[in-house]
């Protein structure tokens, strides 16, 4: 048993998974609004609490994962979810800060639901300033400040969004908090 698999997952796998899913659902339904997730009591190095919680709640043997979080985190996620590793372009969930939005599977026109979910760990998330988001889930506009996304993210986002209904949905994670960017949301720089 490696160090990664010695650590537990969620304290209560059934109810914590439900609560984590509800937080992701709320985040995806109301883009840019920050939600807090129940997190595992212990974590291997290389993965943050929210990103870990999202994967524990949603990944399994049916969802290939691209994980660039180090060997221990990889072993831990695989042990608790059963998800197998895949290249970024073929993964349903991607946790890899080097992966570009346009490199991931956007699904097809007939099956856009096959588009990947990108889990991006960032330095911080706060509401009320920063990007201006608009689109379904947002009454008029919503402000979200994100520190620590890579240069060119907004240009990639615009190019990805232009493919709608194909596209990639993003879950931004900072500590135990998340905010989501479903593929159709318009983002203007603040």
């Amino acid at each position: 048993m490696s160090a990664g698999t010695a650590l537990a997952g969620f304290a209560d796998p059934v109810l914590d998974s439900q609560a984590a899913f509800r937080a992701v659902l709320e985040a995806m339904s109301r883009p840019g609004r920050i939600q807090r997730l129940p997190v595992p009591p212990e974590l291997p190095p290389g993965i943050g609490p929210a990103a870990a919680a999202v994967l524990l709640a949603l990944a399994d043997a049916d969802t290939p994962i691209r994980l660039a979080a180090g060997a221990e985190a990889q072993a831990w996620i695989r042990f608790h979810t059963g998800a197998r590793a895949a290249p970024a372009a073929e993964a349903a969930f991607v946790l890899d800060s080097d992966a570009g939005l346009l490199d991931l599977d956007p699904g097809t026109e007939e099956e856009p639901e096959r588009g990947a979910t990108l889990i991006l760990e960032v330095e911080s998330l706060s509401e009320g300033s920063g990007w201006r988001l608009s689109g379904p889930g947002i009454q008029a506009t919503h402000r979200l400040a994100v520190a620590g996304v890579r240069d060119g993210f907004l240009a990639d986002w615009a190019a990805s969004r232009a493919r709608f209904p194909r596209g990639v949905d993003v879950i931004l994670c900072a500590g135990d908090r998340i905010a989501a960017l479903p593929r159709g949301i318009a983002i203007e720089e603040g």
Binding site: S17, L25, L58, E113, G167, D169, R183
Partner: peptide
């Protein structure tokens, strides 16, 4: 019973479908 009747892997599969449905409104 399992919580809310369904087993965990079925709930997870349905939850993923719900999230994609929300991301692609009306699809």
């Amino acid at each position: 019973y399992n919580f809310a009747y369904l087993d965990e892997s079925t709930k997870r599969m349905i939850r993923r479908a719900i999230l994609k449905a929300v991301a692609i409104p009306g699809h």
